[in-house]
Nucleic acid binder design. Structure first.
Lengths: 330, 330
DNA sequence: TTGAAAGCGCTACCAT
DNA sequence: ATGGTAGCGCTTTCAA
């Protein structure tokens, strides 16, 4: 910047004015400075700028997702990116893989980088460790799973209602033995989905069979094995509710391998690309990822812009997408 | 940091030593400083640190992909992330959506943020605009598509060979009318895949029919419509080579809607989740995304570590994954 | 409209 | 083993 100033024959401050598009620079001087910038290939240093600025804005936000390569996280990231781009805000993205330690260390890393805000799909049980940052005004929006131990903005879907929807749908189609495939039990959304599954049975007056409830499944491989075991029972389920997309995939693999894909009903939680091209097409409870992402961005940027109202909790209602697999009769 | 120093009764420099884990601090002093840090909730400011450091490292790299929500880009991002995490390097990720203007502006934004390196899946025809940065030593690794107009490291798959593989496979199964569904023609990988498709015909002595070659398709919707039109021809194709994953999906939609999924052969380029669960399971040419990502990371971090050998160009051979859809007889 | 000087939070360098 | 001082590249403040 000093070189640019020298070449253009102006002061540092004037170059700064040009670079930041501030008023109070004559067209003539502006042109001279811009030419000098071009000649020297000067690139403004945003880190130095941030350091000195009174607001300390880095124009960067951090996003901690479950796994940037899974379709739900990736869709979220994309929706956020679109909102961020309009403001010329960059996104630091990371995957947590349900590892609490990683959440702690990545949050620290983002704070050391002075992000203007944080979006997180938490994997820890409680986020008390964020209390200091929240109090000092760091904008944080929780997504998919609400905050525990602290209060902050959040955007979640009504997991219980979604599970109730899915399970009731199969009960109404006459199923009485519906299996449940669930995520790691400690994850709050998994608990809510399980509660919805049970509620549906209660509402319909159908007894639950604990042998049909399998939790703590990490991914499609786990789900496939669990499904295999369920189908080997003396009195196997005639329907399955898979409480996450990867678990539904594992279930499909198992059913397909045994030629039961058209015999056992299946409803998944969380839509994914190609679910409609499976055979039978997969009936799912859909969480509108783009809508969630848009809401998250709205909350986050409002906070960044100084909104200091009490935390807001947005709940998005999931919808049942009927495609075929969930309508198979017992 | 000043406050920490005051509270611990040491100098600024000593706090800096503790924070950076430098040697030459007694255990006693270190403990005192750490306690002060804890009491004050002090968080090191990485931007200020970067500014002052002699190497100017930001421990941040920029990644420009086609679209972070598509499985190929997302897989790349994830592989890179895993390599970056080991070094405590953060990732700024963005989507280009095949828009050249966005590439220019995002590269600028990343340079202003002083990233230590850049990974890009370019969407521009030429990247001469990067010449200055490359000359001044910015590590850049091109992925999926090689650099044009400048020289830099790259990791690409052998697109021509992959297309040759796919097309020959169907020719060997007796097909003589194989359609081609291709990406935007200006994209170099699309051109290479088309060349492979043609080469296969030439090798087999099978004449090409221009009516069966459709390029400039943007996504599954385009592909579906193109496929519909092809199937409406008087002499429709008995097989299809879809040169990108989203195009294969469009083709499947069209075939499925007409009940031809088991009648017309289909091979896609680029594997994706669930391709094996379609009916029939989709035969594809697979590019090993994780392997590509790992190679990219290896090249990038070697450059960041000071490697100044001439640019390296890694070519990954794609493999044919036979699953069913590509083996349908004419 | 333009500029000079101070200082953001930190690390390099040299001294003790 | 510890500290003082200068200065990274920029913006702020105030003066001209």
């Amino acid at each position: 910047m000093r070189d640019v100033a020298a070449l253009a024959g102006v002061s540092l401050k004037t170059v700064s004015r040009v670079v930041n598009n501030e008023a109070g620079v004559s067209t003539d001087v502006r042109t001279r400075v811009e030419r000098a910038i071009g000649q020297l290939g000067y690139q403004h240093n945003l880190a130095a700028s941030t350091l000195r600025r009174s607001d300390g804005r880095s124009n960067t936000v951090g996003v901690l997702l479950q796994d940037v390569s899974n379709s739900f996280s990736a869709g979220m990231l994309r929706a956020l990116e679109d909102a961020a781009r309009e403001r010329d805000v960059a996104i630091l993205a990371s995957s947590l893989d349900e590892e609490p330690d990683r959440e702690h260390s990545l949050v620290g890393s983002l704070i050391r980088r002075r992000v203007d805000g944080l979006v997180m799909m938490p994997t820890t049980q409680r986020q008390d460790y964020l209390a200091d940052e929240l109090r000092s005004g760091l904008p944080v929006v929780f997504v998919d799973r609400g905050p525990k131990g602290v209060d902050a903005d959040s955007v979640v879907v009504d997991n219980r209602a979604g599970a109730l929807l899915a399970t009731t749908h199969m009960l109404e189609h006459g199923h009485r033995r519906i299996a449940y495939l669930g995520d790691l039990n400690r994850i709050s959304t998994a608990a809510a989905r399980r509660a919805g599954y049970r509620q549906a049975h209660k509402d319909a007056g159908v007894p639950l069979d604990p042998a049909l409830e399998v939790g703590d499944l990490r991914g499609d491989t786990d789900a496939r094995e669990a499904m295999d075991r369920l189908l080997d029972l003396d009195d196997p389920p005639t329907a399955v509710f898979a409480a996450r997309n990867s678990l539904a995939i594992g279930a499909v693999q198992s059913l397909r391998a045994r030629g039961l894909a058209h015999r056992v009903a299946l409803v998944g939680f969380d839509d994914f690309p190609l679910a409609d091209l499976l055979d039978p097409p997969l009936t799912v409870v859909r969480q509108d990822v783009r809508r969630i992402g848009t809401e998250v961005a709205r909350l986050l940027f409002a906070r960044i812009d100084g909104d200091d109202a009490p935390p807001r909790h947005v709940v998005i209602e999931p919808v049942l997408v009927v495609r075929g697999s969930g309508e198979i009769a017992p």
